[in-house]
Design a protein around this nucleic acid. Structure first.
Length: 492
RNA sequence: GGCGCGGUACCCAAGUGGUAAGGGAGAGGUCUGCAAAACCUUUAUGCGUCGGUUCGAUUCCGACCCGCGCCUCCA
Protein backbone atom coordinates (compact mmCIF):
# COMPACT_ATOMS: atom_id res chain seq x y z
CA UNK A 1 0.00 0.00 0.00
CA UNK A 2 1.42 3.40 -0.91
CA UNK A 3 1.81 6.12 1.70
CA UNK A 4 0.07 9.36 0.93
CA UNK A 5 1.54 12.31 2.76
CA UNK A 6 0.88 16.03 2.63
CA UNK A 7 3.65 17.79 0.79
CA UNK A 8 4.26 21.39 1.82
CA UNK A 9 5.99 22.08 -1.47
CA UNK A 10 3.13 20.96 -3.70
CA UNK A 11 0.46 22.01 -1.25
CA UNK A 12 -1.35 18.71 -1.56
CA UNK A 13 -1.31 15.13 -0.44
CA UNK A 14 1.17 13.26 -2.64
CA UNK A 15 2.34 9.71 -2.68
CA UNK A 16 5.65 9.36 -0.91
CA UNK A 17 8.08 7.11 -2.70
CA UNK A 18 11.77 6.58 -3.28
CA UNK A 19 12.69 8.22 -6.54
CA UNK A 20 15.54 5.83 -7.20
CA UNK A 21 13.44 2.80 -6.34
CA UNK A 22 15.71 1.93 -3.44
CA UNK A 23 15.47 3.03 0.18
CA UNK A 24 13.50 6.20 0.78
CA UNK A 25 15.99 8.90 1.62
CA UNK A 26 14.78 11.27 4.31
CA UNK A 27 16.34 14.03 6.31
CA UNK A 28 14.80 15.31 9.51
CA UNK A 29 15.98 18.38 11.34
CA UNK A 30 17.14 17.38 14.80
CA UNK A 31 17.69 19.29 18.00
CA UNK A 32 20.06 22.02 19.02
CA UNK A 33 21.59 20.47 22.10
CA UNK A 34 21.76 23.42 24.47
CA UNK A 35 19.13 22.23 26.95
CA UNK A 36 16.83 19.32 27.76
CA UNK A 37 14.23 18.54 25.14
CA UNK A 38 10.68 19.68 25.77
CA UNK A 39 7.46 17.98 24.80
CA UNK A 40 7.08 20.22 21.78
CA UNK A 41 10.37 18.97 20.41
CA UNK A 42 9.30 15.44 21.06
CA UNK A 43 5.94 15.77 19.39
CA UNK A 44 7.85 16.51 16.20
CA UNK A 45 10.30 13.65 16.60
CA UNK A 46 7.50 11.32 17.61
CA UNK A 47 5.48 12.16 14.52
CA UNK A 48 8.50 11.55 12.35
CA UNK A 49 8.85 8.26 14.17
CA UNK A 50 5.26 7.46 13.19
CA UNK A 51 6.23 8.13 9.61
CA UNK A 52 9.29 5.87 9.84
CA UNK A 53 7.37 3.06 11.42
CA UNK A 54 4.48 3.36 9.01
CA UNK A 55 6.90 3.12 6.12
CA UNK A 56 8.39 0.01 7.69
CA UNK A 57 4.94 -1.47 8.15
CA UNK A 58 4.27 -0.83 4.47
CA UNK A 59 7.58 -2.53 3.63
CA UNK A 60 9.14 0.66 2.33
CA UNK A 61 12.82 0.72 3.30
CA UNK A 62 14.15 3.99 4.70
CA UNK A 63 17.45 5.75 5.05
CA UNK A 64 16.86 8.45 7.64
CA UNK A 65 19.39 11.10 8.58
CA UNK A 66 19.03 13.46 11.51
CA UNK A 67 21.34 16.29 12.37
CA UNK A 68 22.43 17.31 15.82
CA UNK A 69 23.20 20.99 16.00
CA UNK A 70 26.05 21.16 18.46
CA UNK A 71 27.25 24.63 17.64
CA UNK A 72 25.21 27.81 17.55
CA UNK A 73 25.04 31.18 19.24
CA UNK A 74 23.26 29.94 22.34
CA UNK A 75 25.67 27.06 22.78
CA UNK A 76 28.66 29.34 22.41
CA UNK A 77 27.17 31.80 24.86
CA UNK A 78 26.22 29.18 27.45
CA UNK A 79 29.49 27.30 27.18
CA UNK A 80 31.42 30.51 27.58
CA UNK A 81 29.35 31.41 30.62
CA UNK A 82 30.15 28.00 32.09
CA UNK A 83 33.79 28.38 31.13
CA UNK A 84 33.97 25.10 29.26
CA UNK A 85 34.52 24.07 25.63
CA UNK A 86 31.34 23.79 23.62
CA UNK A 87 31.75 20.03 23.14
CA UNK A 88 31.85 19.57 26.86
CA UNK A 89 28.76 21.71 27.18
CA UNK A 90 26.73 19.93 24.53
CA UNK A 91 27.72 16.32 25.25
CA UNK A 92 25.43 15.82 28.25
CA UNK A 93 22.49 17.38 26.46
CA UNK A 94 23.02 15.24 23.42
CA UNK A 95 23.21 12.21 25.67
CA UNK A 96 20.03 13.30 27.44
CA UNK A 97 18.30 13.81 24.13
CA UNK A 98 19.15 10.34 22.91
CA UNK A 99 18.04 8.91 26.20
CA UNK A 100 14.76 10.79 25.94
CA UNK A 101 14.20 9.38 22.48
CA UNK A 102 14.66 5.94 23.94
CA UNK A 103 12.22 6.75 26.72
CA UNK A 104 9.62 7.66 24.14
CA UNK A 105 10.56 4.72 21.94
CA UNK A 106 11.48 6.96 19.07
CA UNK A 107 13.55 4.84 16.72
CA UNK A 108 17.03 6.07 16.01
CA UNK A 109 17.65 7.32 12.49
CA UNK A 110 20.09 5.30 10.41
CA UNK A 111 22.48 8.22 10.60
CA UNK A 112 23.06 10.93 13.18
CA UNK A 113 25.14 13.83 11.94
CA UNK A 114 26.80 16.35 14.23
CA UNK A 115 27.35 19.79 12.79
CA UNK A 116 30.81 20.15 14.27
CA UNK A 117 31.95 17.01 12.49
CA UNK A 118 31.01 18.34 9.08
CA UNK A 119 32.58 21.77 8.98
CA UNK A 120 34.72 21.02 5.89
CA UNK A 121 31.62 20.03 3.94
CA UNK A 122 29.97 23.29 4.84
CA UNK A 123 33.01 25.31 3.89
CA UNK A 124 33.09 23.52 0.56
CA UNK A 125 29.47 24.36 -0.06
CA UNK A 126 29.99 28.01 0.79
CA UNK A 127 32.90 28.13 -1.61
CA UNK A 128 30.72 26.71 -4.34
CA UNK A 129 28.07 29.28 -3.57
CA UNK A 130 30.65 32.02 -3.75
CA UNK A 131 31.87 30.71 -7.09
CA UNK A 132 28.30 30.75 -8.33
CA UNK A 133 27.90 34.33 -7.23
CA UNK A 134 25.33 33.43 -4.60
CA UNK A 135 27.49 34.18 -1.57
CA UNK A 136 29.57 37.13 -0.52
CA UNK A 137 31.84 37.99 2.35
CA UNK A 138 31.50 41.11 4.45
CA UNK A 139 34.36 43.19 5.77
CA UNK A 140 34.56 41.51 9.12
CA UNK A 141 34.69 38.09 7.48
CA UNK A 142 31.15 36.69 7.62
CA UNK A 143 29.58 35.09 4.61
CA UNK A 144 26.04 35.68 3.45
CA UNK A 145 23.73 34.15 0.94
CA UNK A 146 22.59 36.59 -1.70
CA UNK A 147 18.86 36.16 -1.82
CA UNK A 148 18.66 38.04 -5.07
CA UNK A 149 20.55 35.14 -6.65
CA UNK A 150 17.70 32.73 -6.06
CA UNK A 151 14.45 33.81 -7.71
CA UNK A 152 12.58 30.75 -6.43
CA UNK A 153 12.98 31.86 -2.84
CA UNK A 154 9.69 31.43 -1.00
CA UNK A 155 8.36 28.50 -3.00
CA UNK A 156 8.09 26.28 0.03
CA UNK A 157 6.45 28.66 2.47
CA UNK A 158 4.53 30.38 -0.34
CA UNK A 159 5.92 33.72 0.60
CA UNK A 160 6.33 36.47 -1.90
CA UNK A 161 9.24 38.51 -0.68
CA UNK A 162 9.54 40.64 -3.79
CA UNK A 163 7.47 43.39 -2.26
CA UNK A 164 9.44 43.50 0.92
CA UNK A 165 11.62 46.50 1.28
CA UNK A 166 15.17 46.12 2.38
CA UNK A 167 15.69 47.55 5.80
CA UNK A 168 12.01 47.40 6.61
CA UNK A 169 12.90 45.16 9.49
CA UNK A 170 15.86 45.49 11.78
CA UNK A 171 17.83 42.30 11.65
CA UNK A 172 19.17 40.71 14.79
CA UNK A 173 22.59 40.32 13.23
CA UNK A 174 24.92 43.20 13.66
CA UNK A 175 26.91 42.40 10.56
CA UNK A 176 26.33 44.57 7.57
CA UNK A 177 24.75 42.86 4.60
CA UNK A 178 23.84 43.75 1.07
CA UNK A 179 20.21 43.12 1.70
CA UNK A 180 18.31 42.74 4.95
CA UNK A 181 16.95 39.34 3.96
CA UNK A 182 20.30 37.84 3.12
CA UNK A 183 21.11 35.18 5.66
CA UNK A 184 24.34 34.06 7.27
CA UNK A 185 26.26 31.12 5.87
CA UNK A 186 29.31 31.62 8.00
CA UNK A 187 29.77 33.84 11.01
CA UNK A 188 33.14 35.40 11.59
CA UNK A 189 34.43 34.79 15.09
CA UNK A 190 34.28 37.67 17.49
CA UNK A 191 37.07 37.95 20.01
CA UNK A 192 37.05 35.07 22.45
CA UNK A 193 34.53 33.00 20.54
CA UNK A 194 34.94 29.42 19.44
CA UNK A 195 36.02 29.26 15.82
CA UNK A 196 37.19 26.96 13.06
CA UNK A 197 40.13 28.07 11.00
CA UNK A 198 39.17 27.39 7.41
CA UNK A 199 39.81 28.44 3.85
CA UNK A 200 36.96 30.92 4.07
CA UNK A 201 38.17 32.40 7.30
CA UNK A 202 37.94 31.94 11.02
CA UNK A 203 34.45 31.46 12.26
CA UNK A 204 31.57 29.08 12.65
CA UNK A 205 28.85 27.86 10.34
CA UNK A 206 25.43 29.38 10.12
CA UNK A 207 22.60 27.10 11.06
CA UNK A 208 21.06 26.60 7.65
CA UNK A 209 24.23 25.57 5.83
CA UNK A 210 24.66 22.70 8.26
CA UNK A 211 21.57 20.90 7.07
CA UNK A 212 22.28 21.46 3.40
CA UNK A 213 25.79 20.13 3.71
CA UNK A 214 24.95 17.11 5.79
CA UNK A 215 21.83 16.16 3.86
CA UNK A 216 23.81 16.19 0.64
CA UNK A 217 26.67 14.33 2.25
CA UNK A 218 24.53 11.39 3.26
CA UNK A 219 21.60 11.51 0.88
CA UNK A 220 22.89 13.10 -2.27
CA UNK A 221 22.07 16.35 -4.01
CA UNK A 222 18.45 15.40 -4.43
CA UNK A 223 16.52 13.22 -2.06
CA UNK A 224 12.99 12.11 -1.23
CA UNK A 225 11.76 13.72 1.96
CA UNK A 226 12.73 16.50 4.29
CA UNK A 227 10.87 16.86 7.58
CA UNK A 228 10.77 19.10 10.61
CA UNK A 229 8.66 21.31 12.82
CA UNK A 230 6.40 23.88 11.22
CA UNK A 231 8.56 26.75 12.40
CA UNK A 232 11.40 25.45 10.27
CA UNK A 233 9.47 25.89 7.06
CA UNK A 234 10.44 29.50 7.04
CA UNK A 235 13.13 30.57 7.02
CA UNK A 236 15.23 27.49 7.77
CA UNK A 237 14.00 25.14 5.07
CA UNK A 238 13.53 27.92 2.59
CA UNK A 239 17.16 28.83 3.15
CA UNK A 240 18.28 25.26 2.79
CA UNK A 241 16.57 25.09 -0.56
CA UNK A 242 18.15 28.32 -1.69
CA UNK A 243 21.65 27.27 -0.69
CA UNK A 244 21.41 23.80 -2.06
CA UNK A 245 19.66 24.43 -5.32
CA UNK A 246 21.86 27.42 -6.12
CA UNK A 247 24.76 24.98 -6.24
CA UNK A 248 23.19 21.83 -7.64
CA UNK A 249 20.41 23.27 -9.80
CA UNK A 250 18.42 20.19 -8.83
CA UNK A 251 15.43 19.95 -6.52
CA UNK A 252 16.84 19.61 -3.01
CA UNK A 253 14.07 17.50 -1.51
CA UNK A 254 11.01 16.48 -3.44
CA UNK A 255 8.65 16.02 -0.53
CA UNK A 256 8.45 18.24 2.57
CA UNK A 257 6.68 17.34 5.79
CA UNK A 258 6.02 19.79 8.59
CA UNK A 259 4.71 18.88 12.00
CA UNK A 260 2.49 21.47 13.64
CA UNK A 261 3.31 22.90 17.00
CA UNK A 262 1.60 21.70 20.07
CA UNK A 263 -0.14 24.02 22.48
CA UNK A 264 -0.21 23.61 26.21
CA UNK A 265 -3.53 24.54 27.76
CA UNK A 266 -4.45 26.31 24.57
CA UNK A 267 -1.35 28.49 24.41
CA UNK A 268 1.93 28.17 22.69
CA UNK A 269 4.35 26.62 25.11
CA UNK A 270 6.92 29.04 26.38
CA UNK A 271 9.01 29.50 29.45
CA UNK A 272 7.54 32.92 30.09
CA UNK A 273 3.98 31.58 29.96
CA UNK A 274 4.83 29.03 32.63
CA UNK A 275 3.47 26.18 30.53
CA UNK A 276 6.80 24.77 29.50
CA UNK A 277 7.51 21.09 30.11
CA UNK A 278 10.47 18.90 29.36
CA UNK A 279 9.96 15.19 29.03
CA UNK A 280 11.75 14.74 32.32
CA UNK A 281 9.38 17.13 34.07
CA UNK A 282 6.49 14.87 33.14
CA UNK A 283 8.21 11.67 34.17
CA UNK A 284 8.95 13.15 37.56
CA UNK A 285 5.32 14.09 37.91
CA UNK A 286 4.59 10.39 37.66
CA UNK A 287 3.29 10.13 34.10
CA UNK A 288 4.33 7.05 32.20
CA UNK A 289 6.50 7.26 29.13
CA UNK A 290 3.93 5.30 27.13
CA UNK A 291 1.16 7.73 28.07
CA UNK A 292 3.28 10.68 26.98
CA UNK A 293 4.02 8.91 23.73
CA UNK A 294 0.40 8.13 23.01
CA UNK A 295 -0.78 11.61 23.97
CA UNK A 296 1.72 13.16 21.59
CA UNK A 297 0.96 10.89 18.64
CA UNK A 298 -2.80 10.52 18.85
CA UNK A 299 -3.55 13.83 17.20
CA UNK A 300 -2.45 13.72 13.57
CA UNK A 301 0.69 15.66 12.79
CA UNK A 302 -0.97 18.31 10.67
CA UNK A 303 -3.21 19.47 13.49
CA UNK A 304 -2.39 21.50 16.51
CA UNK A 305 -2.36 19.31 19.56
CA UNK A 306 -3.50 20.87 22.78
CA UNK A 307 -1.46 19.17 25.44
CA UNK A 308 -3.07 18.84 28.86
CA UNK A 309 -2.66 16.67 31.91
CA UNK A 310 -6.18 15.39 31.37
CA UNK A 311 -5.03 14.20 28.00
CA UNK A 312 -2.17 12.36 29.63
CA UNK A 313 -4.54 10.61 32.02
CA UNK A 314 -6.80 9.70 29.14
CA UNK A 315 -3.85 8.19 27.30
CA UNK A 316 -2.83 6.29 30.42
CA UNK A 317 -6.28 4.75 30.69
CA UNK A 318 -6.52 3.90 27.02
CA UNK A 319 -3.17 2.11 27.18
CA UNK A 320 -4.26 0.25 30.28
CA UNK A 321 -7.27 -1.06 28.42
CA UNK A 322 -5.12 -2.26 25.54
CA UNK A 323 -2.60 -3.90 27.81
CA UNK A 324 -5.25 -5.64 29.86
CA UNK A 325 -6.79 -6.95 26.70
CA UNK A 326 -3.44 -8.09 25.37
CA UNK A 327 -2.72 -9.96 28.60
CA UNK A 328 -6.12 -11.53 28.43
CA UNK A 329 -5.30 -12.97 25.03
CA UNK A 330 -1.83 -14.09 25.96
CA UNK A 331 -2.77 -15.72 29.26
CA UNK A 332 -6.19 -17.06 28.46
CA UNK A 333 -7.05 -20.63 27.56
CA UNK A 334 -8.95 -20.90 24.35
CA UNK A 335 -10.49 -23.86 22.59
CA UNK A 336 -9.06 -24.99 19.29
CA UNK A 337 -10.60 -23.73 16.10
CA UNK A 338 -11.47 -20.48 14.50
CA UNK A 339 -14.52 -18.25 14.61
CA UNK A 340 -15.26 -16.74 11.18
CA UNK A 341 -16.84 -13.63 12.69
CA UNK A 342 -13.70 -12.86 14.64
CA UNK A 343 -11.42 -13.66 11.73
CA UNK A 344 -13.38 -11.10 9.73
CA UNK A 345 -13.21 -8.61 12.57
CA UNK A 346 -9.46 -9.00 12.76
CA UNK A 347 -9.08 -8.53 9.02
CA UNK A 348 -11.32 -5.47 9.04
CA UNK A 349 -9.34 -3.95 11.88
CA UNK A 350 -6.07 -4.51 10.11
CA UNK A 351 -7.36 -3.08 6.87
CA UNK A 352 -8.90 -0.02 8.49
CA UNK A 353 -5.80 0.58 10.54
CA UNK A 354 -3.43 0.46 7.58
CA UNK A 355 -5.71 2.56 5.43
CA UNK A 356 -5.83 5.29 8.05
CA UNK A 357 -2.09 5.42 8.53
CA UNK A 358 -1.48 5.37 4.79
CA UNK A 359 -3.79 8.31 4.49
CA UNK A 360 -1.46 11.07 5.62
CA UNK A 361 -0.62 9.32 8.88
CA UNK A 362 -4.05 9.69 10.38
CA UNK A 363 -3.25 8.26 13.78
CA UNK A 364 -6.57 9.28 15.30
CA UNK A 365 -8.48 7.36 12.67
CA UNK A 366 -6.07 4.43 12.91
CA UNK A 367 -6.86 3.85 16.57
CA UNK A 368 -10.56 3.38 16.04
CA UNK A 369 -10.58 -0.02 14.30
CA UNK A 370 -8.19 -1.37 16.90
CA UNK A 371 -10.53 -0.46 19.70
CA UNK A 372 -13.44 -1.86 17.71
CA UNK A 373 -11.58 -5.13 17.61
CA UNK A 374 -10.83 -5.01 21.32
CA UNK A 375 -14.50 -4.69 22.11
CA UNK A 376 -15.54 -7.45 19.71
CA UNK A 377 -12.90 -9.80 21.05
CA UNK A 378 -13.61 -9.07 24.70
CA UNK A 379 -17.27 -9.78 24.09
CA UNK A 380 -16.39 -13.03 22.36
CA UNK A 381 -14.14 -14.07 25.21
CA UNK A 382 -16.91 -13.36 27.70
CA UNK A 383 -19.13 -15.64 25.65
CA UNK A 384 -16.39 -18.22 25.15
CA UNK A 385 -16.56 -17.83 21.42
CA UNK A 386 -13.00 -16.78 20.87
CA UNK A 387 -10.85 -19.67 19.67
CA UNK A 388 -7.16 -20.27 19.38
CA UNK A 389 -6.85 -19.21 15.75
CA UNK A 390 -8.76 -16.03 16.54
CA UNK A 391 -6.43 -15.28 19.38
CA UNK A 392 -3.48 -15.60 17.04
CA UNK A 393 -5.08 -13.46 14.37
CA UNK A 394 -5.92 -10.73 16.87
CA UNK A 395 -2.49 -10.81 18.43
CA UNK A 396 -1.07 -10.27 14.98
CA UNK A 397 -3.22 -7.18 14.55
CA UNK A 398 -2.09 -5.87 17.92
CA UNK A 399 1.49 -6.50 16.91
CA UNK A 400 1.11 -4.40 13.82
CA UNK A 401 -0.61 -1.70 15.87
CA UNK A 402 2.32 -1.74 18.23
CA UNK A 403 4.78 -1.70 15.35
CA UNK A 404 3.76 1.92 14.94
CA UNK A 405 2.14 3.06 18.17
CA UNK A 406 4.38 1.00 20.44
CA UNK A 407 2.47 1.42 23.67
CA UNK A 408 1.16 -2.06 24.46
CA UNK A 409 4.49 -3.66 25.30
CA UNK A 410 5.07 -2.31 28.77
CA UNK A 411 8.52 -0.92 29.36
CA UNK A 412 7.50 2.05 31.45
CA UNK A 413 9.37 1.07 34.56
CA UNK A 414 12.81 1.69 33.13
CA UNK A 415 12.36 5.32 32.00
CA UNK A 416 10.73 6.20 35.29
CA UNK A 417 13.57 4.62 37.21
CA UNK A 418 16.08 6.45 35.02
CA UNK A 419 14.30 9.74 35.54
CA UNK A 420 14.37 9.32 39.30
CA UNK A 421 18.06 8.53 39.16
CA UNK A 422 18.63 11.62 37.08
CA UNK A 423 16.56 13.76 39.43
CA UNK A 424 18.76 12.72 42.27
CA UNK A 425 21.94 13.59 40.41
CA UNK A 426 20.55 16.82 39.04
CA UNK A 427 19.17 17.96 42.37
CA UNK A 428 15.62 17.83 41.11
CA UNK A 429 14.21 15.49 43.76
CA UNK A 430 11.98 18.28 45.00
CA UNK A 431 10.12 18.07 41.69
CA UNK A 432 9.26 14.40 42.07
CA UNK A 433 5.60 13.75 42.76
CA UNK A 434 5.06 12.16 46.19
CA UNK A 435 2.74 9.56 44.67
CA UNK A 436 5.51 8.48 42.35
CA UNK A 437 7.91 8.07 45.24
CA UNK A 438 5.50 5.97 47.26
CA UNK A 439 4.58 3.90 44.22
CA UNK A 440 8.23 3.22 43.53
CA UNK A 441 9.06 2.63 47.19
CA UNK A 442 7.55 -0.86 47.16
CA UNK A 443 9.54 -3.61 45.52
CA UNK A 444 7.89 -6.29 43.47
CA UNK A 445 8.70 -8.86 46.13
CA UNK A 446 7.05 -6.84 48.87
CA UNK A 447 3.94 -6.46 46.78
CA UNK A 448 3.91 -10.14 45.86
CA UNK A 449 4.12 -11.03 49.54
CA UNK A 450 1.23 -8.77 50.45
CA UNK A 451 -0.83 -10.08 47.56
CA UNK A 452 -0.15 -13.65 48.70
CA UNK A 453 -1.18 -12.76 52.22
CA UNK A 454 -4.39 -11.27 50.90
CA UNK A 455 -5.15 -14.35 48.84
CA UNK A 456 -4.73 -16.49 51.93
CA UNK A 457 -6.95 -14.16 53.95
CA UNK A 458 -9.57 -14.45 51.26
CA UNK A 459 -9.43 -18.23 51.37
CA UNK A 460 -10.00 -18.05 55.10
CA UNK A 461 -12.85 -15.68 54.35
CA UNK A 462 -11.12 -13.00 56.36
CA UNK A 463 -12.34 -10.28 54.03
CA UNK A 464 -11.59 -7.48 56.43
CA UNK A 465 -7.88 -8.25 56.32
CA UNK A 466 -7.98 -8.85 52.56
CA UNK A 467 -9.61 -5.49 51.94
CA UNK A 468 -7.22 -3.80 54.31
CA UNK A 469 -4.27 -5.01 52.29
CA UNK A 470 -5.92 -4.00 49.05
CA UNK A 471 -6.62 -0.52 50.37
CA UNK A 472 -3.12 -0.06 51.66
CA UNK A 473 -1.67 -1.02 48.32
CA UNK A 474 -4.17 1.18 46.51
CA UNK A 475 -2.99 4.16 48.48
CA UNK A 476 0.46 3.53 47.13
CA UNK A 477 -0.76 3.28 43.58
CA UNK A 478 -0.84 -0.50 43.37
CA UNK A 479 -4.04 -1.95 41.95
CA UNK A 480 -5.08 -5.53 42.60
CA UNK A 481 -7.35 -7.44 40.29
CA UNK A 482 -8.83 -10.85 40.97
CA UNK A 483 -9.57 -12.98 37.97
CA UNK A 484 -10.32 -16.56 37.09
CA UNK A 485 -6.70 -17.03 36.18
CA UNK A 486 -5.44 -15.73 39.49
CA UNK A 487 -4.58 -12.42 41.06
CA UNK A 488 -2.63 -9.76 39.25
CA UNK A 489 -1.42 -6.37 40.33
CA UNK A 490 -0.06 -3.35 38.56
CA UNK A 491 1.38 0.02 39.32
CA UNK A 492 -1.18 2.62 38.48
C1' G B 1 -1.06 44.14 7.94
C1' G B 2 0.50 39.33 4.96
C1' C B 3 0.11 33.84 4.97
C1' G B 4 -2.15 29.52 7.14
C1' C B 5 -5.07 26.35 10.41
C1' G B 6 -9.16 25.29 13.44
C1' G B 7 -14.29 25.80 15.90
C1' U B 8 -18.05 18.31 16.05
C1' A B 9 -21.31 15.52 22.58
C1' C B 10 -18.70 16.67 29.69
C1' C B 11 -13.32 16.33 27.68
C1' C B 12 -9.99 14.61 23.46
C1' A B 13 -11.04 13.55 18.48
C1' A B 14 -12.09 11.12 13.13
C1' G B 15 -15.05 11.91 9.15
C1' U B 16 -18.38 12.15 4.67
C1' G B 17 -22.97 15.64 -0.32
C1' G B 18 -27.53 11.51 1.92
C1' U B 19 -28.81 12.45 7.80
C1' A B 20 -22.43 11.70 12.96
C1' A B 21 -15.88 6.69 13.99
C1' G B 22 -12.98 5.94 18.19
C1' G B 23 -10.92 7.11 23.09
C1' G B 24 -11.52 9.15 28.06
C1' A B 25 -15.06 10.49 31.78
C1' G B 26 -20.17 10.04 33.95
C1' A B 27 -24.86 7.09 34.89
C1' G B 28 -27.52 2.27 35.11
C1' G B 29 -26.89 -3.08 34.67
C1' U B 30 -24.24 -8.18 34.38
C1' C B 31 -20.15 -10.55 36.91
C1' U B 32 -17.71 -10.42 42.00
C1' G B 33 -17.56 -11.89 49.32
C1' C B 34 -16.93 -6.57 48.10
C1' A B 35 -14.04 -4.40 44.40
C1' A B 36 -11.16 -4.14 39.98
C1' A B 37 -11.06 -5.82 35.00
C1' A B 38 -14.45 -7.13 31.10
C1' C B 39 -19.15 -6.81 28.73
C1' C B 40 -24.20 -4.55 27.85
C1' U B 41 -27.22 -0.03 27.87
C1' U B 42 -26.85 5.14 28.02
C1' U B 43 -24.72 10.83 26.96
C1' A B 44 -24.83 15.52 19.66
C1' U B 45 -32.21 15.26 15.15
C1' G B 46 -26.60 17.82 16.41
C1' C B 47 -21.27 19.17 13.81
C1' G B 48 -19.37 28.26 15.69
C1' U B 49 -23.41 31.99 13.58
C1' C B 50 -26.23 33.68 9.39
C1' G B 51 -27.24 33.25 4.36
C1' G B 52 -26.67 30.60 -0.54
C1' U B 53 -26.13 26.21 -4.03
C1' U B 54 -28.63 21.29 -3.93
C1' C B 55 -33.90 16.64 -3.97
C1' G B 56 -30.67 16.68 0.33
C1' A B 57 -24.89 19.97 3.77
C1' U B 58 -21.75 18.98 9.40
C1' U B 59 -19.38 18.01 4.64
C1' C B 60 -19.58 22.91 -1.31
C1' C B 61 -19.83 28.65 -1.70
C1' G B 62 -20.14 33.59 0.77
C1' A B 63 -20.27 36.75 4.98
C1' C B 64 -19.57 37.21 10.04
C1' C B 65 -17.96 35.77 15.19
C1' C B 66 -14.30 33.21 18.16
C1' G B 67 -9.58 30.65 19.00
C1' C B 68 -4.62 29.47 17.41
C1' G B 69 -0.01 29.39 14.63
C1' C B 70 3.77 31.50 11.28
C1' C B 71 5.77 36.10 9.27
C1' U B 72 12.25 37.46 14.85
C1' C B 73 17.84 30.84 13.82
C1' C B 74 11.42 28.52 18.94
C1' A B 75 10.26 21.46 17.17
Amino acid sequence: MPLRLFNTLSGQVDELFAMDGKALRMYACGPTVYDYGHIGNFRTFLQIDILRRTLALLSIPVRHVMNITDVDDKIIRNAAAAGIPIAQYTAPFEQAFLEDLETLKVQRPEQLARATEHIPRMVELIQKLAAAGAAYQTEEGSWYFRLAAFPDYGKLSKKDLSGMEDGARVDVDEYEKDSARDFALWKAAKPGETFWDTAIGRGRPGWHIECSAMAMEYLGESFDLHAGGEDLMFPHHENEIAQSESVTHKPFARHWMHVRFLLVDGRKMSKSEGNFFTLRDLLLKGYKASAIRLALISVPYRHQLNFTFDGLIEATNAIERLRTFHQRLVNGNFAAGSNPALQDAAKAAQTGYLAALSNDLNTAEARAPIFDLVRAANTAIDQQQLLVADRDAILAVLASFDAVFDVIQDSDAEPTRRALEWAEKAGRLADVAPELLSRESLTGETIDALVAERTLAKKQRNFARADQIRNELAEKGIVIEDSKDGVRWKRK
